[in-house]
Design a protein around this nucleic acid. Structure first.
Length: 129
DNA sequence: CGCCTGACGAAAC
DNA sequence: GGTTTCGCCAGGC
């Protein structure tokens, strides 16, 4: 309970900041870091949590900086609404994404998350939005 | 300053 | 139900 509350508070604090894109980026990273091990979420879900569900593309765009920021963002736990590992091509060794997910207990087959619904982690729900 | 692209998503066809 | 188009917005050229 404290963890999720802390996360939501942090996000709310970041939201009304003066900046925009930079803030948005941080929000995306922050939410992504809240993803528990063995779970995945979608770009659209994150976007919805930030109130910019229509700009789901921007979430993926923001993820462009994942791994370049500190601490690193588990971008491998973020997939599209279809449960497909659309961002795997952006990882250094292509396929690392699936490897990491499998390692965390997530079944991945043909660049697609199996039992996606079961491992899906909704930030809106978990963070109390 | 305008056009194209892009780690998405939902609607249209 | 698979494929295509549109919307969304930021960044690169």
């Amino acid at each position: 309970m404290p963890a999720k509350k802390k996360a939501s508070e942090k996000l709310k604090t970041l939201k009304p900041s003066g900046k925009r894109e930079e803030n948005f980026f941080e929000l995306v990273f922050e939410v992504a870091r809240q993803i528990p091990k063995g779970k995945v979420t979608s770009y659209g879900a994150i976007a919805a949590a930030l109130g910019t569900k229509s700009s789901s593309r921007m979430v993926g765009w923001a993820m462009n900086g994942a791994g370049k920021v500190k601490p690193k963002v588990p971008a491998h736990r973020v997939v599209n609404r279809n449960g497909m590992l659309t961002g795997k091509h952006h990882f250094k060794p292509t396929g690392l994404m699936a490897k990491l997910l499998k390692k965390e207990g997530i079944k991945v087959k043909n660049d697609q998350v199996q039992d996606f619904k079961n491992v899906f982690w909704d930030p809106v729900q978990e963070l109390g939005f």
